[in-house]
Nucleic acid binder design. Structure first.
Ligand SMILES: [Mn+2]
Ligand SMILES: [Mn+2]
Ligand SMILES: [Zn+2]
Ligand SMILES: [Zn+2]
Lengths: 136, 136
DNA sequence: AATTAAATGCAACAATGTTGCGTTTCTGAC
DNA sequence: GTCAGAAACGCAACATTGTTGCATTTAATT
């Protein structure tokens, strides 16, 4: 069990109110949360720019990973330290009804995918869309 | 060889200047184009809202399919009538350097992917990211 | 307690996309 | 060709997401 404070420390991020709050929320959440989602959930005063910068910092350090939903808005999910050794290459499920984003266990092999000559593959993002259990 | 006019007719879309121009551009393009890309390429006067609505109309009718790039902006690509019988379920390559979006031949089977109990799979989107041949 | 790099707050801005509404234009029927 | 109706367009106004610059505050270290 690693505390929020410890996680921040391990990534050389200063321990601030908003970072603690955001990280706590996302560790507990079972889904990806957008800037807007977090703004509504956070029970404190903060500048919206600070939240954007917080999310960027977390993404850069690998604490969170970003998923672009079908509307083009970013959602962030906590990167499980054990699960994601292979650098968050897992697939995501996106509910077409409520917009919920869930991390799946499924991962994909980059090798198997053919690209045109001269193209270099680096990462793969897979989004499975459909209806989540709540909306079903 | 189907002309632009014929394509519009087949989808019950009125034949207008901007629709002809947009569709011509996208049929010739070997990559997905954004609203901005098209705005720059189009050599005519038009309202930006009209272009948004044109792209929506084309997407709804299946003439184009939308790809959300890593910045969250929409790009549109012509849906090849023969290639995409299985409703544009092919993968896309996205260049991390220049942002270019290319349709790949690769398709994926929805069956193989496991989702939590109660979730219903409908479609799958695969994005392979890396460096394109121009940027290499 | 002093130092300093990092983080924050604020203001201003840009890009993308949407909605409402009045006007124009395409198309099909006559 | 004329006409009518539906579809598309142009314009204005707005919402949301995200970025940048800069002055101020704060967390962590000594
Ligand atoms: Mn995930
Ligand atoms: Mn495509
Ligand atoms: Zn749902
Ligand atoms: Zn490129």
């Amino acid at each position: 069990m690693t505390s929020v404070e410890e996680i921040l420390q391990q990534h050389n991020l200063k321990n601030t109110r908003i970072r603690q709050a955001v990280l706590s929320l996302l560790i507990d959440a079972d889904e990806g949360l957008s800037h807007q989602d977090l703004s509504k959930s956070l029970d404190m005063d903060f500048d919206r720019v600070t939240l954007f910068r917080t999310l960027h910092a977390f993404e850069e350090s690998g604490i969170l990973h970003k998923i672009i939903d079908p509307n083009g808005t970013a959602k962030y999910a906590y990167t499980l330290p054990d699960k994601d050794k292979n650098k968050h290459s897992h697939a995501h499920f996106i509910c077409l009804n409520c917009g919920q984003v869930v991390c799946l266990d499924e991962t994909f092999l980059l090798n198997e995918i053919k690209v045109p000559k001269g193209f270099i593959k680096q990462t793969i993002d897979v989004q499975v869309k459909g209806i989540c259990v709540k909306c079903n």
